[in-house]
């Protein structure tokens, strides 16, 4: 048996033709997933380092190559589900920090970003335009005050 690195779509084709086994990534086993879950629960400030596409990759394995996984598949599935849920809870808590300028979301995966994208983008867009309106108003008030000062000094001269 040879080991070779190919894109995952190619591995899927070969697997469907029974021409290969797919080597699972080092995080897709009970032991590591449990550790990751533990990290999510204990460290509420950050997210554990999972690949950008971890949800997609695990789904591909569950559906196309369950026999290549070393642990029982229903246990793996439920752990992935747990991880997904705890991370979503943390994400939603983190969203209370949203402001008009920026939000930092390290180690979030693409799926997780897409899940919050519509909501977060529209909220931040509104906050941005509101804060702009406020600074514009302030600017106008300042300008008015300045021009009043100018007026006053003109009167002073007279």
């Amino acid at each position: 048996m040879n080991r070779i690195q190919v894109p995952i779509w190619l591995a899927q084709i070969l697997k469907a033709q029974r021409k290969c086994n797919i080597v699972p990534p080092e995080w897709l086993n009970l032991k590591t997933l449990k550790e990751l879950y533990q990290h999510e629960v204990t460290d509420l400030e950050s997210f554990s380092e999972l690949p950008f596409n971890w949800l997609e990759i695990s789904k591909i394995f569950f559906e196309n190559a369950p026999d290549d996984l070393s642990d029982e598949i229903h246990k793996l599935k439920s752990l992935i589900q747990d991880l997904k849920e705890i991370r979503m809870i943390k994400i939603k808590k983190g969203l209370t920090l949203i402001n008009e300028s920026h939000l930092q979301l390290d180690n979030l995966s693409l799926m997780e970003i897409n899940e919050i994208r519509p909501f977060v983008v529209s909220v931040m867009g509104k906050l941005t335009s509101m804060s702009e309106a406020v600074t514009q108003d302030e600017q106008e008030v300042e300008d008015e005050m300045e021009s009043e000062d100018d007026d006053a000094s003109m009167y002073g001269k007279e």
Partner: peptide, 15 residues
């Protein structure tokens, strides 16, 4: 605005 944001390699932001 008044905030300064450091962009560090590998990090993800919404800006």
């Amino acid at each position: 605005g008044d905030e300064e944001i450091e962009l560090t390699k590998g990090n993800i932001y919404l800006i």
